Computed example of a mutant assay.
Amino acid sequence: MLIACTFPDPLSIALSGSDGHLITHYIMGNPNALTDAQIAAVTGYKSRKAFEDAANQAGRTDPVPARQDYPGYVSGVFNAAVPQEVRYHPVNNRTGARPTVYDAARNIYGIDKATGFALRPFDNVGVQYGLAALNGGGITVDQFLDLNEKVGGYDQDANYVPARSPGDLGAILRAQQSGLQLGGNGGLATIPVVDVTGVYNEDTAYHYQWFHFALRERMLAANGDTANHVMWRGNPVPADTAWDMFIRWVAAYKDDKSQAPQRQRVVTHKPRDAVDGCWRSQTDFVAEPQTLSSTPDTTCNSLFPSWTAPRIAAGGPIAGDVMKCTLKPVNPADYSVPFTPDQLNRLRAIFPTGVCDWTQRGVNQTGVVPNGSFGPSPVNLVFDITKS
């Protein structure tokens, strides 16, 4: 697979946008709480503008038409061909079609029988927004507490609510079983994967590099290594060179008629020039491992620095694949800064059931079910909405 403009899946855009959009809501209500530099530190992005563009992608989850919200936010978008009378409206047509990433896949996520809406996998219970900024000295303890106390969550119509959002456990499980959240197992484990994206605008438009590294981290977690994955960065990567390398790789493993497992054949016949690196120009290649970093700690990171996203900046994995975290009790030893007794009590009140333990697998975290059926076929049946 030769990929460009890498995203693990559309759901990752929507979920990271949903985290960010909660923070935009906090900013609207508390405009002087954080400086622009602190907003970038809290959210993981390069700048406030980069954060805002990514956060506004939460509109993909919002069925309410023309919501008045943060500048640039667009919700409830339909193709003009969809008649007005069949479109959802929270007052005038609550049984109408809902243009969200969740409702488009309602046969997989499942349906809330009380409302008819798709069940939602978004969960931010225990997420400590701005944790990296706190531990790095970018924000104070009081700023950290205020943000997490007020950030809240969403209801089924993507309205803000004061409480955190618990994701539906079945929807979380099926998002991964179906591949709506891409897993690193299945087909990705046994084919050449070459990431040659040359879109490296970390300032705007949400095509950010952390998505590339998220894909590779998912493959690493599922398979133990990423020997069948190569990342070339450039502005742009020379397309003909990348295509030639990819085609030689595919042809070589296809020509191997042995009984070895396909993954083994793919790795065995990996071309010598199929190595990580970046292109200074169309003819100048730097061979070195590609890493996610905003600091100039390698040649390629000097040329193509990369930033993260709110949940990674909250301590989560680069893979961005933990939809609902496992919780642990608040422990002051986990922080690089001291809390007063009152601050610690406040933190425990904000997180009464605990905070995310990112060293553990997520709740209902699993891989894709290859060739899984979500009804009506009984072959490899995972879920049948007509029987739920």
Rank of each mutant, 00 (worst) to 15 (best):
residue 114 A to K: 08
residue 98 R to T: 02
residue 365 Q to Y: 08
residue 235 N to F: 06
residue 382 V to R: 00
residue 202 E to M: 03
residue 289 P to D: 08
residue 90 P to A: 15
residue 365 Q to P: 11
residue 273 D to A: 10
residue 81 A to K: 14
residue 238 P to K: 01
residue 319 A to D: 13
residue 51 F to Y: 06
residue 70 Y to K: 04
residue 381 L to W: 08
residue 344 L to F: 08
residue 63 P to F: 15
residue 370 P to S: 04
residue 104 A to C: 13
residue 312 I to Q: 11
residue 252 A to I: 00
residue 35 T to E: 08
residue 330 V to R: 03
residue 341 P to N: 00
residue 141 V to W: 02
residue 76 G to R: 10
residue 171 A to C: 05
residue 368 V to I: 14
residue 324 K to C: 14
residue 327 L to M: 10
residue 52 E to W: 02
residue 330 V to I: 10
residue 351 F to W: 05
residue 194 V to Y: 12
residue 71 P to I: 04
residue 158 A to H: 13
residue 157 D to M: 13
residue 331 N to S: 15
residue 382 V to H: 00
residue 213 F to A: 02
residue 251 A to C: 09
residue 38 Q to E: 09
residue 257 K to Y: 15
residue 193 V to R: 01
residue 123 D to N: 10
residue 383 F to R: 00
residue 197 T to H: 01
residue 362 G to H: 04
residue 178 S to P: 14
residue 302 S to A: 14
residue 70 Y to N: 06
residue 322 V to E: 02
residue 33 A to K: 05
residue 209 Q to F: 00
residue 225 D to T: 09
residue 271 P to A: 10
residue 364 N to D: 12
residue 272 R to I: 10
residue 116 G to V: 04
residue 109 Y to I: 03
residue 355 V to S: 04
residue 15 L to Y: 10
residue 369 V to I: 15
residue 92 N to E: 14
residue 295 T to C: 11
residue 378 P to Y: 14
residue 101 V to Y: 12
residue 130 G to C: 07
residue 163 A to R: 11
residue 39 I to Y: 01
residue 141 V to G: 04
residue 231 M to L: 13
residue 290 Q to G: 11
residue 355 V to D: 00
residue 174 R to A: 01
residue 3 I to K: 09
residue 116 G to N: 09
residue 103 D to V: 01
residue 42 V to R: 07
residue 300 C to N: 10
residue 255 D to H: 14
residue 165 S to Y: 08
residue 104 A to R: 12
residue 282 Q to R: 13
residue 167 G to V: 13
residue 100 T to C: 05
residue 119 L to V: 06
residue 157 D to R: 12
residue 382 V to N: 01
residue 347 L to K: 07
residue 295 T to E: 13
residue 311 R to Y: 05
residue 268 T to E: 13
residue 385 I to P: 15
residue 156 Q to Y: 06
residue 74 V to M: 12
residue 1 M to L: 15
residue 369 V to E: 11
residue 365 Q to D: 09
residue 84 Q to E: 14
residue 213 F to R: 08
residue 127 V to C: 04
residue 205 A to H: 13
residue 384 D to S: 00
residue 262 Q to T: 03
residue 376 P to L: 04
residue 241 T to N: 12
residue 174 R to S: 04
residue 10 P to G: 00
residue 356 C to A: 06
residue 153 G to H: 04
residue 198 G to V: 01
residue 208 Y to C: 06
residue 124 N to S: 09
residue 167 G to P: 02
residue 184 G to P: 07
residue 155 D to W: 12
residue 147 L to D: 04
residue 132 A to E: 12
residue 33 A to W: 00
residue 219 M to S: 00
residue 108 I to A: 02
residue 179 G to R: 03
residue 247 I to M: 14
residue 247 I to F: 15
residue 152 G to V: 08
residue 164 R to T: 15
residue 199 V to D: 13
residue 254 K to V: 01
residue 302 S to C: 10
residue 42 V to F: 05
residue 176 Q to S: 01
residue 374 F to T: 03
